[in-house]
Design a protein around this nucleic acid. Structure first.
Length: 829
RNA sequence: GCCGAAGUGGCGGAAUGGUAGACGCGGCAGUCUCAAAAACUGUUGGAGGGCAACCUCCGUGUCGGUUCGAGUCCGACCUUCGGCACCA
């Protein structure tokens, strides 16, 4: 598409019009909107606020089509809400800490700050070409000291309230990224969420947040409107199981401990315990192993240690285990139960110990069969003949072989045995979770330093608030191994103890970047505030976020962490709401050439090229048109021209003086009807994120208007109104061309400050409908009738039809059904 | 293995249980042009029939079911993509 020196073309009707040149008008309006601060917002108690948020991007270098796909439709929706009269906050920023910057530092010798800020500058200018209503005065850049100062401040608040702690645990280590990872960041078959490398286990002392304190509240979604899918993923991840903790006796084991506790979801099967299992890492394993078996046990423990974690827990693996030679006592039966260790029992879940009930647990059944341990049924399956079970029975039934509890159902037995546990002091009903505390320390440079000093005398000492931020040293030396340079930066490490003033050592770990994204949406409400992370009045005006849009891949990462964080801040007294994001909407993925776009595949679509060739409005519209937003879609180089053509047609319709010719009242009425019908449909579609059908409706409307423009068959007034409605409805989707044509049509600047049009239900309704006639379920005729037609009238018309007559032809009519405005269904024998 | 989403023309996709294929791409034919591109107009699910306006049959992953009527609801299965996966 070339800029024409002759910017006029002649229409068939002889009217003159200019040519649509997006390159010229888009930059013009972007500059004008910025100059006029059109999209800057302030708190206005008289208007209903609407906080529409898109997940902020990592500044990887260039804005790619995936960013556009996430951002353009969100912007359209935000603009729509704005025209509906809401006070809309729609900010943008950068999730700027993270490993790629540090890797660039190692590889290319460029400092992470320089690399990141350079990328941000480039992406910011690319973002401006999209024509979004971002209020740039509120931009957040998480790697800037005026931001991470508050990230550190929040850490201190959590530390002071006991929600942040340092502890030793077997943690996930990514050898590629040279850092530990949270459980949520290990995906698939034990791979690093970032780089895909195989994660290994290490015992390390690390910083954790007590997200497990909030497990139950995080399962409560009653205050949010989120997709079922995300709620399910989070619920599965938290993994709540109701059961009981009960102790087994160790009286004669010759050690200090006199019991071991297990967690079970089936206390009702306690009479069926025939062996006892410990995790190989359980601290009592050594003490409970008899000398004769020590060598074998040690060999097995060593073998387990060498297994990758995901291998150990892979389903369908043959059971392994070793007998320790010692026994526990089942308090209910006073039986001696042999203690085994096996790798399918995890130290991190429950108590790291399990009671083996082979008759009623598939895994235990497999284990017992392999090692020839007894299988004792204690729940009778229906129709059970008393013979040995061929497989574990996990269903409902009556308790048998269970002493005083015989005859109870599974549910009754559960309750009765829990009652006995409490009564005897052997244990209690309790709940176990799969969720673990969130590991937030990272052995890397490019993150917010954890504000802690270790002092030989005072121990672990938090940095005083007034000394924040703990700044990253600019002169750190990046090692090719990826080891954190902070450890070797003496100027950073050596710090006086805030309490006693003696020399201390600074914590050299930085925080997980998900900590930075835990609160950026709070910061948007209070740009530039330096007396706190946010201003409480501003926060209370805007929060919570009304609509949050982004990818579903953050289900148990950012989306779970942020919910936890807001609840923690609420309990500390820093804010007063329970959930950060009231409504969540996940867009799908945009693919190209049959696959997800990625740098390694080399199938990246660069939007800049299309913007300069066809215009940002065209790219915005095309991305909305490829399919339902939540399902994603495929980028097609040829498909986009359809949207370019459509905008050219819109231009041709709006940008010339309309000349009424031979007027025709029915055409005039039809255009009015189309106007109202289109307003209705477009409004409903935008409300429900149906951007693709919304544009299809607008296209239908323009397809009707084309021939009318040529013929001049409606009044000038009707035409002008049609143009007005068309532009208003298109304004959120294609803001530049809409503004330009709005101005050219003599309307007052800016179209984006106009009210969203309303429709008249009576005019939106069809006056004439085509009613299909089915005979015995087959379509046989169609009748064009007034929508108001009565059943009697349509009955007469239907039976009067020659086609219908030929199909009925003397046969008996058994049934006549009329669905008003839709269909007539006649059943003949 | 369990849970969830999806399967419709050559392609992307539309269809409150009521005319399957809106809208767009691509194709074909035409207008314009010396020509091409662009633009515009018409046409376009498949098979068959008719000089014709048209007519008939088939058709929404597969097989059944409910219903006057099923892409849509129910049951079983197949495929693809996500999530969870020895969590006691």
């Amino acid at each position: 598409m070339q800029a024409s020196h002759l910017a006029c073309v002649r229409l068939q009707s002889g009217l003159m019009t200019s040519k649509y040149e997006p390159q010229q008008i888009e930059i013009k309006w972007q500059d004008k909107w910025a100059q006029d601060h059109l999209y800057e917002v302030t708190e206005d108690p008289d208007r209903t606020k609407y906080y529409a948020l898109t997940m902020f991007p990592y500044p990887s270098g260039d804005l790619h089509i995936g960013h556009w796909y996430a951002m353009a439709p969100s912007d359209v929706r935000a603009r729509f809400k704005r025209m509906q009269g809401y006070n809309v906050l729609h900010p943008m920023g950068f999730d700027a800490f993270g490993l790629p910057a540090e890797n660039a530092a190692i590889k290319h010798g460029i400092h992470p700050y320089t690399w990141t800020m350079g990328n941000i500058e480039r992406m910011r200018s690319q973002l401006r070409t999209m024509g979004c209503i971002y209020d740039w005065t509120r931009e957040v850049v998480s790697c800037q000291p005026d931001y991470y100062r508050w990230t550190q401040w929040f850490f201190l608040k959590l530390y002071q309230s006991g929600l942040a702690y340092r502890g030793t645990a077997p943690v996930n280590w990514c050898p590629q990224c040279q850092t530990v990872l949270a459980n949520e960041q290990v995906i698939g078959e034990g791979e690093c969420e970032r780089c895909g490398a195989a994660v290994t286990r290490r015992d390390m002392e690390q910083w954790f947040f007590r997200i497990t304190n909030y497990a139950d509240e995080l399962l409560d979604f009653s205050k949010v409107e989120w997709p079922e899918r995300i709620k399910t993923i989070q619920s599965n991840w938290i993994g709540r199981s109701e059961g009981a903790e009960l102790s087994f006796g160790l009286e004669n084991a010759g050690i200090d401990e006199d019991e071991i506790r297990v967690f079970t979801t089936r206390p009702d099967t306690v009479y069926g315990v025939t062996y006892f299992l410990l995790s190989p890492e359980h601290p009592l394993v050594k003490k409970l192993t008899i000398p004769d078996r020590m060598a074998e046990v040690e060999e097995y423990v060593e073998w387990c240690r060498r297994q990758e974690d995901y291998e150990r827990t892979a389903l369908g693996r043959e059971k392994t285990g070793v007998f320790l030679g010692s026994y526990v006592t089942n308090r209910f039966t006073n039986e001696r139960i042999p203690i085994w260790i096996t790798d399918y029992v995890l130290l991190s879940y429950g108590t790291g110990a399990v009671m083996g009930v082979p008759a009623h647990d598939e895994r235990d059944f497999e284990f017992a069969t392999k090692f020839d341990l007894p299988i004792r049924p204690v729940i009778a399956p229906p129709d059970w003949d008393g013979n040995p079970l061929q497989q574990a029975y996990v269903g409902d039934g009556r308790l048998v072989n269970s002493g005083e509890f015989d005859g109870l159902s599974v549910d009754e037995g559960f309750k009765a045995i829990c009652g006995k546990l409490e009564q005897e002091g052997w244990g209690k009903a309790t709940v176990a979770y799969r969720l673990r505390d969130w590991l937030i320390s990272r052995q890397r440079y490019w993150g917010a330093p954890i504000p802690i000093v270790y002092c030989d005398r005072c121990g672990t000492v938090p940095v005083p608030e007034e000394d924040l931020p703990v700044l990253l040293p600019p002169d750190a030396e990046f090692k090719p191994t990826g080891e954190s340079p902070l450890k070797y930066c003496d100027a950073f490490v050596n710090a006086a103890c805030p309490l006693c003033g003696e020399p201390g050592k600074r914590e050299t770990d930085t925080m997980d970047t998900f900590m930075c994204s835990n609160w950026y949406f709070l910061r948007y409400t209070s740009p530039g505030v330096d007396y706190g992370p946010y201003d409480k009045d501003k926060l209370n005006y805007w929060m919570p976020v009304d609509l949050y849009t982004g990818g579903a891949e953050h289900a148990v990462l950012h989306l779970l962490y942020s919910r936890f964080f807001v609840k923690a801040l609420r309990d500390i007294g820093l804010l007063e709401f329970d959930e950060p994001f009231t409504r969540l909407y996940n867009q799908g993925t945009i693919i190209y050439g049959g696959g997800k776009m990625s740098k390694s595949k080399g199938n990246i679509v660069a939007p800049d090229l299309y913007v300069s060739k066809l215009g940002a409005d065209t790219v915005r519209a095309y991305l909305m048109f490829v399919g339902p937003w939540n399902l994603g879609g495929e980028w097609s180089d040829s498909g986009i021209v359809g949207l370019s053509r459509w905008l050219n047609r819109v231009w041709a319709l709006c940008d010339h003086d309309y000349a009424a010719g031979t007027m025709d009242q029915s055409t005039d009425d039809h255009v009015r009807h189309m106007m109202h019908k289109t307003i209705k449909a477009v409004t409903a579609d935008l409300e429900e994120f149906r951007f693709n059908t919304m544009l299809a409706r607008l296209m239908e409307f323009t397809n009707v208007l084309g021939p009318i423009q040529e013929a001049g068959s409606v009044s000038a007034e009707t035409w002008r109104e049609a143009m007005r409605i068309l532009l208003l409805l298109a304004a959120p989707s294609v803001p530049h061309i809409a503004e330009e044509l709005w101005t050219r049509n003599g309307h007052p600047y800016s179209i984006h400050n106009q009210e969203w049009p309303s429709f008249d239900e009576a005019l939106a309704r069809e006056e004439e409908v085509t009613v299909a006639i089915q005979i015995n379920g087959k379509l046989r005729d169609k009748l064009v009738v007034p929508a108001s037609i009565s059943e009697e009238e349509i009955r007469a018309l239907a039976f009067g039809s020659q086609k219908v007559k030929s199909y009925i032809d003397g046969r008996d009519v058994n049934k006549f059904i009329y669905v008003p405005g839709r269909i007539v269904s006649i059943v003949v024998s």
